[in-house]
Design a protein around this nucleic acid. Sequence first.
DNA 1: GAATTGAATTATGAATTCATTATTCATGTC
DNA 2: GACATGAATAATGAATTCATAATTCAATTC
Lengths: 233, 233
Amino acid sequence: MMDTMSNGGAGDMGVALLSRPALAVQVADALRELIMEGAIKSGEKIREKELTERFGVSRTPIREAMKILASEGLIELIPNRGAIISERSEEELADAFPVLAALEALAGEQAARRATDAELAEIVRLTVELRASLERQDRPHYFEINQAIHKAILVASRNETLMRSHATIAGLVHRARYQANLTRSRWEQALAEHERIAEALSARRADEVAALLKTHMMGKLAAILPGRGGPAD
Amino acid sequence: MMDTMSNGGAGDMGVALLSRPALAVQVADALRELIMEGAIKSGEKIREKELTERFGVSRTPIREAMKILASEGLIELIPNRGAIISERSEEELADAFPVLAALEALAGEQAARRATDAELAEIVRLTVELRASLERQDRPHYFEINQAIHKAILVASRNETLMRSHATIAGLVHRARYQANLTRSRWEQALAEHERIAEALSARRADEVAALLKTHMMGKLAAILPGRGGPAD
DNA sequence: GAATTGAATTATGAATTCATTATTCATGTC
DNA sequence: GACATGAATAATGAATTCATAATTCAATTC
């Protein structure tokens, strides 16, 4: 027992001696990871006992972790009947994406005003790398760099509250959905949008960055749910 | 014991026979209420034992509730040292408001497209009432109607995810701050903005509603934190 | 043979207990 | 008299135990 997450001695990991996060938080992070990576399928029932065995801790921190994830909307808690991974209906996806788009637009707007020159240069560099990965047809790498760019914009916005909100919504729209439905033409279009975003960011044209990011995100939705993501929705 | 929140017999309240929310959720709601109403001051330390006595339940549901509130950012959990009500620094307020503005702008945009005619009529009616309360110099009533309008727009957006995100951020920027710093001229200006919003909504001019709401919210920030809320950030 | 009822099992909800970490206060030393 | 060290106290973190609700399965009846 106590295999996966030792909370015992002080010199366990060599790092994090000062104020280790509570077990419940560690469990929540681990579970979130599992859910977002799709290791636990949507609609699946979560039994506390299984998690107890998987993580090697008692039910108490597990239950606390479930409360956290439930408040984020990642799982659904049914009284006396345990938790299930929330199914994301098409409707919920169609709801979540505009919110994500609005948050990213704001991130871009604030990043255009607040980012350091070095941060902007890094985003430009990543965008160049993005084109390279498209030309190599390297989807996993494209995907990775794409994530990094969006993350960099968030960070450059210097808005902690914004980052938290974004992380929550992004968690709902988990990434499995992203990679699918990426046709070559959509791929090219997305890259062109990214290049315009990088350019507008470099010129610190805040409003334009915001508009471009919003369009970009809604384009993603349209690629995922054809017929629902149009700008007129 | 078991005074405030009885979870015992089935016929206790007559209502809610089917799947009563777990105690932890009830505690979380009650605590959230207390914090948002300012009954517990910012920066104050929360002792689990006090809450145990106040609510008449054991520490377990209390601790689960605290995890929920912490994940919402309402309180801060320090390992082995309990929780404190998060102080909102001016910086955090200045961060949170643009997020709130972006979310309300999206709500307005979607409401303009999705609201029923009846919902739009109700928002117009509330706006008329808003003017009446200004003319009566009835601040509490103005404040109440104001809240109702923003809520109505959120509901009319028909976006559950958006409503949840908004509620979380709105919780951070709790209402005590609102009522202060409302000069007569700012009051008049805010009302004028509300009337333009109602008009644009009625005409279903989505983009205009979004822009107006964003400006309106940033104006609120400027009234609260002079010198930080300008459109140029 | 199908359906319904009730007992047994299993899982969750909450309380209690145990362990560990902070904090506080007193004592001793410089 | 001030600071440091250590013991006592109190609070949190997690495990265990107890209670209650739901599910399952078998037996009985129609």
